[in-house]
Design a binder for these strands. Structure first.
Lengths: 363, 363
DNA sequence: TTGTAAGCGTTATCAA
DNA sequence: TTGATAACGCTTACAA
């Protein structure tokens, strides 16, 4: 493989000059420039990025640590990250399925020298001190963190407020006995949505009959099973709030097979607004969440952070949007943005939905 | 940031010894080993991977070049890649949305020195010479290539045979006027499925009335629009073959809104068997494709290739599976694997479906 | 068992 | 405008 030395020899110049020409980093006479380009082309020279990173102490790459890669949500997050990264000429080093703190730490470690910063979606709460360690090494942006970490940048989705909006909508439609299909334990999104569910019920002064919480794991299959459980209850609930759309689809399927109609017999609301939600029958009422933007914003914040370290910036919360379609039993479709005015910061602004955990800032 | 020199100084040994201890690459006395580990821990030393790659001439990372990241299919491919990579202790450098040859080449170039091999899903046909150039630099495994590239390793999905199986099944059920919702032009999967559609019709001696090809782009929305076109035809077809499940979902939605029943009035078959296919109503008959395995196999082949360069291996074709559910009008659900016996290589083996392009090897 | 020193392929700082 | 040359942080002969 040709190195800069080979090119230098072929062009009869020093390696310094080759570097200058290839990077356009200093004035070089037209004639030698030509010679160098010609030699590089002739030898089909590809520069070695590892060597470059070593001298420049910068990698032009960012690392991405995710708990999982399953489903359309993560797929969109990555798409957002990749898009922003390529626009800024950064490469993306990805790694997923981190079970615990030690693993996250090990992977971050192994990225030392290859990345300039890290986007992390932490799997569990034990990760907090790991994040601390990582922060000492790289600029870090957290995705949907459960807790605020020592002034670390973060971008999240308005899970709490989205859930409040969804459940409140069900209440407004007259539903009283509302049950929840939960997401997996330990998942930050699932927990925020669960809290939102409870908060909305409390605000409405509602206590559904037991049992009204059913466990799922964000897959269609788990939604299907949860719905079977629900149908075994002594009295059918008025409405089901599934903590994500995949589970809502499973619910829809199970309920349909049992001959129970949606929304006539039972209303259904999901979360995420994945692409197919609007094509289901009935079209799924859900909370739209911009997963692409989540990835995109994280990368932008990371780059901003590199430019201005030590600047404290409040966590960024991406608004959600309640999208009312047919599955909730609403006579007409409509939609409303939530959580863009919940922080209470706007003068005269009044929270649209009461929120004990405003904007999901801190539990 | 602590380097190996700092650790050496703190442990009062040479950097060579530190390296030996940290990598366990040579015998070191118990006592000094202790001292080195202690010093490394004390200084919280993280080795620099770029420097290591430079000396060892190996990066412990693989590059992944994809045309897009949209949808569940790619999400699964990446999951497969990531899983295999982490098992083999490789990092994954990912990059997507490559419009043309030059871009693919540029990205591959920029990865020089950071990766040991490359998994490439090429966007268009012009890419062939680019792949050639890349192959000179890295071990390369192609994903679903359109053409065989100079003895380059490849792993594909049995798109052609899957489509033949799907359409043949519709014919077997008595459907005669079968229309196709095509995938995007220039997409290798879409084209192979299109060829399979034609081959099956030809074998059956069928010529549906015009028009019987409708353009889509693999999204739900395009399937929806295509279905509206189809419903405007002077006579409703017996069956619709959508080149992927997302479009089939769009078709299902449009057809349902028009009051046309599936499968009673029109049969429907998709391709991919995404997670929700079985939860639709009616459950979608489709061709199951193992996207996870596609990524997984690609990485394994890459690693195998690194171990034994210059070995010529035939393209690996992952079998598809026709999964018959309710949307095609079949009275009972069943499924069958296709394309595991199509190459005609097995002695006495007879192709289950006639295939002018056996196993999609070469168009 | 340990240390010295020569790379690995760049960029960047000097002089010339 | 150019060329030596010293880093960058690590691994690995080769000596001791």
């Amino acid at each position: 493989m040709a190195t800069i030395h080979h090119v230098a020899r072929a062009a009869e110049v020093s390696i310094a000059t080759v570097s200058r020409v290839l990077n356009g980093s200093a004035r070089v006479s037209d004639e030698t420039r030509e010679r160098v380009w010609a030699a590089a082309a002739e030898l089909d020279y590809w520069p070695n990025s590892a060597a470059r990173s070593l001298t420049t102490q910068t990698a032009n790459a960012i690392g991405v640590l995710l708990p999982d890669l399953y489903g359309e949500f993560f797929s969109e997050v990555i798409r957002g990250i990749d898009g922003a990264a390529r626009r800024e000429k950064y490469q993306v080093l990805i790694s997923s399925s981190h079970a615990d703190t030690d693993e996250v730490l090990a992977v971050a470690r192994s990225m030392r020298g290859r990345i300039d910063g890290l986007v992390v979606m932490a799997p569990d709460e034990g990760t907090s001190d790991a994040i601390d360690q990582i922060t000492r090494r790289f600029p870090v942006v957290l995705l949907n963190p459960r807790f605020e970490v020592n002034g670390c940048r973060a971008v999240s989705i308005a899970n709490f407020d989205g859930a409040v909006a969804a459940v409140t909508h069900l209440v407004d439609l007259g539903h009283r006995d509302i049950v929840l299909v939960k997401g997996p334990c330990g998942n930050a999104d699932a927990e925020a949505r669960l809290r939102g569910f409870h908060a909305a019920l409390e605000t409405a002064g509602l206590t559904p009959r037991e049992p009204f919480e059913f466990l799922g794991d964000f897959t269609e299959a788990s939604g299907f099973r949860a719905a079977q459980e629900i149908l075994r209850r002594d009295r059918r609930p008025d409405a089901v709030f599934a903590a994500n759309d995949s589970m809502a689809i499973g619910v829809l399927s199970a309920v349909g097979q049992a001959g129970v109609r949606v929304p006539e017999d039972v209303a259904l609301v999901g979360f995420d607004d994945i692409a197919i939600a609007q094509y289901l029958s009935p079209a799924l009422t859900t909370v739209h969440v911009d997963a692409f933007a989540l990835g995109d914003r994280a990368v932008r914040q990371l780059i901003e952070l590199k430019g201005a370290p030590d600047t404290i910036v409040p966590p960024e919360i991406l608004p959600a949007r309640l999208v009312v379609r047919r599955s909730c039993g609403s006579p007409t479709p409509w939609s409303v943005e939530v959580a863009h005015d919940l922080a209470g910061a706007e003068p005269g602004g009044r929270p649209r939905f009461p929120s004990p955990h405003a904007g999901d800032r801190m539990p």
